[in-house]
Amino acid sequence: MTIRFTKDHEWIKLEGDVATVGITDYAQHALGDVVFVEVPEAGKALSQGKDAAVVESVKAASEVYAPVDGTVTEGNAALADEPALVNTDPTGKGWFFKMTLSNPSQLDALMDEEAYKSYVEGL
């Protein structure tokens, strides 16, 4: 299992062939109370750095970018009824979508947990 982070505060966790994507604790904190999440549908092709999902607080709407290229296998349906999961459990039940990777080596260029931690501290 590998977990990686982007500079735009997404996390991606690879388990077998499928990776799970969400936003970090830092990001949910900056957003404030999340009130709405729009996740992509299964089958949607994603390209690295391009819009993949939308997350909204009362006063801000943010795009969540795809951390790597690939195809969506599942969006987190639970967020439709309970968007607060993004606040309470951003790296667990508050995940956004699962995807297969078309180019797993893209993961190598992302930050590991240690690197992300010091990146956030520098912000």
Binding site: A30, G32, D33, A60
Partner: peptide, 12 residues
């Protein structure tokens, strides 16, 4: 994700 500095408390 895109960051927006308009975030502010929205629950009293």
């Amino acid at each position: 994700m895109s960051m927006n500095n308009q975030g502010r408390p929205t629950t009293p």
